[in-house]
């Protein structure tokens, strides 16, 4: 999707935190990205490297923690890793499945 604008937004978040703590140089920015968030991680890294060219994040690295999807069935209670993109219970076939993780898109830290 919008890897370039996501990268800019990640940098804005990191810059504002760095400023808040009076940090002049950020080594890396940590993000959590769900595998089902619709983000191309390679593109995100490239976009980040290109955009991190000024301020505290100049030359910073992007650390990506990929979050695997986990589903929970509200009928049988099974918690499972959906092997492929599906919201049907792998155990009882129920449609009452909620995605507990796998759509994350968040900044979780800066290494200074």
């Amino acid at each position: 999707m919008h890897e370039a604008s996501l990268a800019r937004r990640i940098i804005e978040i990191a810059e504002s935190r760095a400023k808040l703590h009076g940090i002049l140089s950020v080594k890396s920015v940590k993000v959590r990205v769900g595998r089902w968030a619709g983000v191309n991680v390679d593109q995100l890294r490239r976009a980040f490297t290109q955009a991190a060219n000024a301020g505290a994040t100049a030359g910073a690295r992007l650390d990506v923690e990929l979050v695997e999807p986990v589903c929970r069935c509200e009928d049988c209670g099974a918690v499972f890793d959906p092997q492929r993109f599906t919201l049907r219970c792998a155990h009882c076939g129920s449609a009452k499945v909620v995605l507990r993780q796998g759509r994350e898109l968040e900044v979780v830290g800066i290494e200074v």
Partner: peptide, 13 residues
């Protein structure tokens, strides 16, 4: 040193 943050990237939207 790591400074922990939790900020959703699409929070503004």
């Amino acid at each position: 040193m790591e400074i922990k943050i939790i900020e959703r990237i699409l929070a503004a939207n």
